[in-house]
């Protein structure tokens, strides 16, 4: 996989200063990513979102990021200037956040936002940008792209907003996409539509995808590989197809504790957290 490695993360640490001292949100996370779908799964406080943010360069300024290696396509992300980082972001690395309501600009139409994104990274004429934006909206299966183009974010539904967000993020043709709980705010049926679109685009364009979620079952059905995080550390890396044979008790516990249709268990098995998992 060495020739095709898109992202390499080695011993990533994110440290936050707090009133009571330093708190490490991410404590030595390592993985590498090719042109594949990688899921990062964990519960709240596991550091999964901070891992994504650190790769994206969106860690809050008061926190400190360190790593033995954090390289994207051979570029050392920690040593380049903030300016170079910005030009990577949105251009070659894109991110989708949980709630489109908060990540789309409320006072700009959806179409204009897509065009803005495109034109900050590429020199294209207005007409061409519009063309490409409409094509992108079509690609995320928005039925009437011309109408949605002129709508404001509050005028569309959650599922539509998230599609518009995906369109905006993909219009520059990024190589790596980080999706942080992209469908958690959506209804289940809409959730699958959005995932289908994401899946198709990632496959067609040969992108690398990091899918961050709390939902182990969803991630394992969507991704090729799964990284399970607990208390800022990776407890297990496993192929999604082999999840049933997961070794770590945390992964197994996480899989077991969810109610499933057709598998009656009363009471549900609960997770017995062992202190050594976090050690």
């Amino acid at each position: 996989m060495s020739g095709d490695t898109l992202l390499e993360v080695d011993d990533l640490r994110v440290t936050f200063p707090t009133r009571t001292g330093l708190v490490q949100a991410v404590r030595g996370v390592s993985f590498s990513l090719g042109r594949e779908r990688l899921g990062i799964v964990g519960e709240s406080g596991s550091g999964k979102s901070q891992t994504g943010r650190a790769i994206m360069g969106l860690t809050p300024p008061q926190a400190e990021v360190s790593a033995k290696k954090l390289a994207f396509g051979g570029i050392d992300l920690l040593s380049i200037s903030p300016r170079q980082r910005r030009s990577l972001r949105g251009n070659r690395i894109a991110m989708i956040l949980q709630d489109p309501k908060y990540s789309l600009d409320p006072v700009m139409t959806i179409g204009r936002q897509i065009i803005e994104t495109l034109r900050t990274h590429e020199k294209v004429s207005k007409a061409e940008a519009r063309e490409r934006a409409l094509a992108m909206l079509q690609a995320v299966q928005i039925r009437d792209p011309a109408r949605v183009f002129d709508l404001y974010p509050h005028e569309v539904s959650g599922g539509m907003g998230q599609r518009a967000m995906i369109a905006m993020m993909l219009v520059t043709g990024p190589e790596l996409m980080i999706a942080d709980e992209p469908t958690s705010a959506l209804d289940v049926t809409v959730q699958l539509d959005v995932l289908k679109i994401l899946d198709k685009l990632v496959a067609e364009r040969g992108m690398g995808l990091i899918f961050i979620s709390h939902d182990l079952r969803l991630v394992s059905s969507f991704c090729d590989r799964v990284v399970v995080m607990y208390a800022g550390k990776v407890v297990e890396q496993i192929k999604a197809s082999e999840l049933r044979d997961a070794q770590h008790p945390y992964t197994r516990g996480l899989l077991n504790c969810m109610p499933r249709i057709g598998f009656e268990r009363h009471p549900l098995p609960v997770l017995d957290r062992k202190p050594e998992w976090a050690a």
Binding site: D215, G253, L254, C257, P267, L268, L271, R273
Partner: peptide, 11 residues
Amino acid sequence: LDASVQAEVLN
């Protein structure tokens, strides 16, 4: 709630 906590509360 997180899945593991959900199980506890449902129980």
